[in-house]
Design a protein around this nucleic acid. Structure first.
Length: 579
RNA sequence: CGGGGCAUAGCGCAGCCUGGUUAGCGCGACUGGUUUGGGACCAGUAGGUCGGGGGUUCGAAUCCCUCUGCCCCGACCA
């Protein structure tokens, strides 16, 4: 490809809209262009990268027995009614009507569609296990797209679905997919990518692992133990929180004027936040009051809470609702309330601590020395469960070492779905005895654009991307400096054709301009290797060779044999990323 | 959905507060010339419904109302 013909202007400055690093470089380098919020066109460079990632995904999926299919992006409501998700999924599912008024949707994931295939095409245990996958556009009407290609509304996803006769078989295959994912992320050039235990969310099912590319711009917060044995998303992370256990003292009413927050109360009483109990009120999806009790220094983890309460929605409760059960906002506690009027959750940090400060359900008063076991008479219906948000340096439950906090981009997610879809959708197989059973399913996704945006987040310098050879849009950038010198241009043309004949993917900067602008563009293009032809080196019968990840260092090589040299370099570069 | 910000040429910006020729600047693009190792220089050219609509005014990029779009923080999210 000649750079003079490549569609996609390089920009010296990034549009103001672009904030994150990968977004800026993608726009500046001409990889993609925005169309609407969270919707992008891929220009030739971006598309080439995407196709390379896709090729790796196909290889790896085929290698573990996957069969590629293609399901439609537009799906009818009926299919999603079978799983119940047409109504249960929120507004991120884009629903619309066709010309006949029929409810349709844009697929955001394809469990329903694949189950429809499986239940007619896979009928016997002899056909199982089976794995189907596709590379298909997904549409998710995200509330807040952000960070360029990292969180978008429309994107290509590799989604795979496996079908099994037993949980054991699923678990065995799940491990195989897991290993395949590790290979994939290594091959595309993610340097720091870890798997963590995750909340399975609306996908349902049991075990789920997320693959996280560690990057500052990542939206997910992760906690890892120093030995790396414990790795979890903040949504599910647990920690060993030291509790204060002491001899219970007498409950004591204390005036605490204007002490509405934990901070105020602790300061006023000369205690630490750890010595207090915080009351947090929510309203669940049925409008019922949820009363959460947690130690004053710890935040409620709403993801955990939602799971415990089995409620898809949680909102902070209004004061009216709080007062309706006799609690006083700012001074609320369990003590003396009729717990049957609400759903009560007590975090172990409250249940297991001694002598906490709690609200008195009376304006400007708190109690000292609350002890859950002693002071809550009727514990029927009270859920004691961990709803604590882990903080950096909280202790890992097993190693007792402080947890590290980091940000991650979720580039892949694998789930053991079990029968969540096969049961309601009647996706069954016949066993050896002719008996019918629901299939046991797994599903496995990778966002393609997000994955290569994450690669960019992890592989760059101040001037642009440093693409791994495996997904680089081209392998070699051939740069001609000063085409006014006929010999330079002639040699460039010659090398260009020789490289192409040798099967080297070459992008030829045929503009023959100044070094500065040519090099700046080359940096933005980020190709692994660069060959520079200029009058200076030509006089010595040499060309200059650079690796993108060497920065500005380069070496001079004889023109003779340069093609073979490049082929060897490319092969060696691929070695680095082989599984 | 809540909070904040922005909208002027392909990109980055100035002008707006205090209304008044033909709306500027840098980069990029085009033409010609000089240059040629980390974003060169000279001369010239093209490119604008100043986000849309309404209002105030003799006169609106500028003041007022309204709508829309985009970005950021949060909520939400396989």
């Amino acid at each position: 490809m000649r750079l003079s013909k490549l569609v996609g202007q390089r920009l010296r400055e990034a549009p103001r809209d672009a904030q994150t690093l990968s977004h800026k470089f993608m726009i500046r380098g001409g990889y993609c262009r925005p169309v609407s919020a969270g919707i992008f066109s891929l220009l030739p460079l971006g598309r080439r990268i995407e196709r390379k990632v896709e090729a790796i995904l196909r290889e790896e999926m085929d290698a573990i027995g996957g069969q590629e299919i293609l399901m439609p992006m537009v799906l009818p409501r009926e299919l999603w009614d079978e799983s119940g998700r047409f109504t249960s999924v929120g507004s991120e599912l884009l629903r619309f009507k066709d010309r006949n008024g029929k409810d349709m949707l844009l697929g955001m994931t394809h469990e329903e569609a694949v189950v429809q295939i499986a239940r007619t095409e896979l009928v016997s245990y002899k056909q199982l296990p089976a794995m189907l996958y596709q590379l298909q556009l997904k549409y998710r009407d995200e509330a807040r797209p952000r960070a360029g290609l990292i969180r978008v509304r429309e994107f290509t996803m590799k989604d795979a679905y496996s079908f099994h006769t037993s949980q054991e078989d699923l678990e065995e295959y799940y491990k195989i997919v897991y290993d395949s994912y590790v290979r994939i992320f290594h091959r595309i050039g993610l340097k720091n990518c870890i798997s963590i235990k995750a909340d399975s969310g609306m996908m349902g099912g049991g075990v789920s692992d997320e693959f996280m590319a560690i990057a500052d711009c990542g939206e997910d917060t992760l906690f890892c133990s120093p030995d790396n044995k414990y790795r979890a998303n903040r949504e599910v992370a647990c920690a060993k929180i030291p509790l204060v256990k002491e001899e219970p003292r007498e409950l004591e009413l204390k005036q605490t004027p204007d002490c509405k927050t934990i901070e105020d109360v602790a300061k006023f009483l000369g205690l630490k936040a750890e010595n207090t109990c915080k009351a947090v009120f929510y309203r669940d999806y049925e409008g019922k009051l949820v009363f959460v009790n947690i130690r004053g220094d710890i935040e409620v983890n709403e993801a955990k809470l939602r799971k415990i309460l089995q409620t898809p929605e949680l909102e902070f409760a209004e004061d009216e609702l709080i007062r309706s059960v006799g609690a006083v906002p700012g001074f609320a506690s369990l003590y003396g309330l009729d717990l049957n009027k609400m759903r009560v959750v007590v975090d172990p940090t409250v249940a297991g601590s001694s002598n906490l400060v709690i609200g008195a359900n009376k304006q400007d008063f708190h109690y000292l020395n609350f002890n859950y076991d002693r002071d809550v008479a009727n514990k029927d219906g009270v859920i004691v469960a961990d709803v604590a948000t882990v903080r950096e340096d909280d202790l890992d439950c097993t190693s007792r070492q402080p947890l590290k906090k980091m940000n991650g981009i979720e580039v892949g997610n694998i789930f053991q779905l079990g029968t969540k879809y096969s049961k309601p959708m009647n996706c069954t197989f016949l066993d050896q005895n002719g008996k019918s059973h629901p299939m046991i399913m797994g599903c496995y996704g990778i966002g393609v654009g997000r994955a290569f945006a994450a690669v960019l987040e992890q592989n760059h310098d101040d001037y642009g991307p440093i693409w791994p050879i495996t997904i680089a849009p081209y392998q070699v950038q051939l740069v001609g400096l000063n085409h006014k010198v006929a010999e330079v241009q002639e040699l460039c043309e010659k090398l260009y054709h020789e490289m192409q004949s040798a099967g080297i993917e070459v992008l030829y900067d045929d503009r023959g301009g100044k070094a500065g602008s040519s090099f700046a563009d080359a940096d933005l293009l980020g190709l692994p290797f660069r060959v520079i032809v200029s009058p200076k080196t030509l006089a010595e019968n040499q060309v200059e060779f650079k690796c993108r990840d060497w920065g500005r260092r380069s070496e001079l090589l004889p023109i003779e044999g340069i093609i073979e040299f490049l082929k060897k370099q490319i092969a060696e570069a691929f070695e680095k990323y082989s599984a």
